[in-house]
Design a protein around this nucleic acid. Structure first.
Length: 317
RNA sequence: CGCGGAGUAGAGCAAUCGGUAGCUUGUUGGGCUCAUAACCCAAAGGUUGUAGGUUCGAGUCCUGCCUCCGCAA
């Protein structure tokens, strides 16, 4: 099929590669303009742009595709595909040809910018990919196909993102195949069940120690590696980032910690800290054991190594 | 030249005014114990990222370069 592909970040790359592999005719690939910079301030190409250079595909950077609808129409595409593109699409654009979107959740759940993080935060057992029609209302179009995937208790944003981006590519090729054969059903979304997710910002990572250890552990996984869950170490005022942790029931740990610390302390208190046993922090419910963390300007370290060089006392706020 | 931090033993960190480079852990050897991620003794392990400069003397001060990290999503 004749396809115009719109995508920007890493998530979209496997889908684009799949189109090429399935020998669809990729008329044009469009990304947001390059925005990320390295430490020296040089602009970095978007992952999709980088991929097109490698695959030798026609490419265009564009900060508003609604202004080039005529040019796109002239290419006579059969279908337009958006994967994490990042621009609002207007009526003119959507009238060019059927437009499909690859979304990383089981819609109508988690519409919006951070579906992967949302599914981990909530503690869902499953999430998945939805291929749907792109309409003006965000992520609200009719569903063409869904495929689900288990969320493991060890999955972080990064691992789940990578799995879903591959699943997204596979699901997309399936839909295109069905579309070509002309036997595809469209199922409207149940608006009542729709939920929405916001764009993640830096401060989303701030830890509220009055939450349960389980909730905080999921927050750590959902925001690993970015923006990462963090908290202020009261003793020095430094922001410490947390990358992995284990939630323990208070009653199963009280034996281990007995005599070492006061498990009735306030939320955020460091109950125990030693290279041998690890780092334990009091939460609103139960106890969180931090297993890897990072001090400012330092590397991410397992807690055993982190605690060799410095002893943590007091509390996090 | 976007702003900031860092580089010291295998690993993680100290080193006050510029004056003997230490600590924890790991490794190796020995000892002890019913027993441990236990305890005791000993040893090995460093061109302090790199190239220069200042100095009687530089981990420390100055300049260039390399590498890593945070901010900027």
């Amino acid at each position: 099929m004749r396809i115009i592909f719109l995508g920007t970040p890493k998530f979209a790359v496997p889908s684009l590669e799949a189109l090429v592999k399935e020998k669809h005719e990729t008329l044009l690939v469009i990304s947001q303009p390059d925005r990320e910079t390295d430490r020296k301030g040089n602009l970095l190409p978007t992952p999709v742009k980088e991929c097109t250079t490698k695959l030798n595909l026609p490419f265009l950077s564009c900060d508003n595709v609604n202004q080039i609808t005529e040019e796109l129409k002239a290419l006579k595409p059969d279908v337009l595909i958006t994967v994490a593109f990042g621009q609002m699409l207007g009526d003119d654009f959507l009238s060019i040809a059927p437009t499909l979107n690859v979304h990383a959740s089981l819609l109508p759940l988690y519409r919006g910018a951070s579906p992967i993080q949302a599914s981990i935060l909530v503690g869902d057992k499953k999430t998945g990919i939805t291929i749907m029609q792109t309409v003006k209302k965000m992520d609200a179009g009719d569903i063409l196909l869904q495929r689900d995937i288990d969320i493991k208790t060890t999955d972080t944003y990064e691992t789940l993102h990578d799995k879903l981006s591959v699943l997204g590519a596979r699901t997309l090729t399936e839909v295109l195949k069905q579309l070509k054969e002309g036997n595809i059903k469209q199922i409207p979304q149940d608006e009542i069940k729709a939920t929405y997710t916001k764009k993640i910002i830096k401060t989303s990572g701030s830890i509220d120690w009055s939450k349960s250890a389980e909730d905080i552990e999921r927050q750590i996984r959902a925001y690993n590696p970015w923006p990462s869950a963090y908290s202020t170490y009261a003793q020095t005022g430094e922001i410490i980032k947390f990358y992995s942790a284990i939630a323990h029931k208070t009653h199963t740990l009280s034996d281990i910690l007995q005599g070492l610390s006061d498990i009735t302390a306030s939320n955020g208190t460091i109950l125990h800290s030693s290279p041998q046993n690890g780092l334990f922090i009091k939460c609103g419910l139960d106890i969180l054991q931090i297993t890897s963390l990072q001090a400012p300007s330092k590397k991410i370290l397992p807690s055993s190594e982190f605690l060799l060089g410095r002893n943590l006392i007091g509390k996090f706020e």
